[in-house]
Design a protein around this nucleic acid. Structure first.
Lengths: 219, 219
DNA sequence: ACATAAAAGGAACAAGTATTCCGTTTATGT
DNA sequence: ACATAAACGGAATACTTGTTCCTTTTATGT
């Protein structure tokens, strides 16, 4: 195994005390602390997007110009930091989805969102990894964001199906899995930057999703 | 990160001495050693297929009823063991591909192989992982097997394209990536056993791969 | 049976990295 | 300026898992 990839696992199984190990951002917050928090989020956003969930937390600390301890003061786990960063992407895409819900052409609206999600993933590794983990959001607190996202997609899918633009035998879960699989597709094979190949794959998926109406070629 | 998955990485960077640390299977081989070797391969085949490359080597040792040291006596690295197991799958599928090369219907031949590869991956996690790693085979010694496999697929693809059964803008690499992505698709989402969903995805891919001849719906 | 080289086994080691702990530094109100 | 709680930093800890090393066991030929 010559590969030099970073690890995915090994987050401690049961943190000994999550009590007040990190700031309970509910009331005050000292000036420098606030600034550091922002630096951490900015650094995390950048690095997670570039390298994905797998980079060591220490790199984010470096990039942010703070110590490891400081990160843990602000976020209880690496996971929590990851989510804090990713929730933005989700909200952005959700609002795009919502604005597409009233588009005159349900088919176009659907495929537009489909492409948007894929484009985001193509350039944003954090988004890919979030998809990869299944749980787009696990915090109970942010459950709403996930539900919004899912229901926006479901809505677009249903409308497109009713308009006979998308095959009717699939559900949101299928869609999710399909998106996921395409996002991961280019992770392998050396040049993950081959955008042409990526577009060809997306094109295959889109054609495959189209409603075949009546004229199905026999098997 | 509550997930309890096993690790993917962390194989030592540069083994200190691979000289004669393991048996140089070229001449003799004591009776018990031979038997153990087979036990190890059998166990590895089973466990890798079930759990993928990520299970700890110690589990294979347990399953095989031998010590860890014994495994390393036979195979220089975990990687080497994995390859020893996987080479079989590749040879099997390659011979299937070759026998399809003379099929009367190039389109059917192509899609049959396509499905076969996916079915194998659906039930065999080792195969999925092998795909995932990009390097289906890295040993120079076994390079031929990989080339056979690739060229068999390339042949089927080309014939299908010439017969206007498959869209012409894709190459073997695209195909590889597509297969890979579908194989990974179900790794996420709890029930990896949802064969119906899997078939729906494969169906989408197949429809997307079909040649659209002339009547392309406008965008 | 015996000698001996082959083989087995598994404790010890190496490495990567998330998380904790605690002594030191700093912002803030008085 | 000062006191003090808040925040910081990063070495130490914990834990996982591939690989090595060396002692003990065993097959095999005589």
């Amino acid at each position: 195994m010559t590969e030099k990839e970073h690890s995915f696992n090994q987050m401690a199984d049961s943190p000994r005390s999550n009590e007040d190990n990190f700031v309970n951002h509910s009331k005050p917050l000292r000036a420098d602390a606030k600034q550091n928090r922002e630096q951490i989020l900015k650094a995390a956003q950048k690095i997670f997007a570039e390298k994905g969930l797998s980079i060591p937390i220490s790199e984010i600390a470096n990039q942010a110009g703070v110590g490891i301890g400081t990160i843990y003061r602000h976020f209880p786990t690496k996971e929590a930091l990851f989510e804090a960063v990713n929730i933005n992407y989700k909200q952005r895409l959700t609002s795009e989805a919502k604005s597409l819900m009233n588009h005159v052409d349900p088919g176009k609206a659907f495929f537009d969102l489909f492409s948007r999600v894929l484009d985001e993933g193509f350039t944003n590794r954090a988004w890919k990894d979030a998809f990869k983990r299944g749980t787009l959001i696990s915090e109970t607190a942010n459950l709403g964001v996930l539900q919004d996202f899912q229901s926006a997609i479901a809505n677009l899918l249903t409308r497109a199906q009713q308009a006979k633009a998308v095959r009717e035998d699939i559900d949101v879960q299928d869609l999710n899995t399909l998106l996921f699989s395409l996002l991961l597709a280019l992770e392998q094979q050396g040049d993950a930057s081959d955008i042409d190949r990526f577009h060809r794959l997306v094109s295959i998926a889109i054609d495959g999703l189209r409603c075949k109406d009546a004229f199905n070629k026999s098997k």
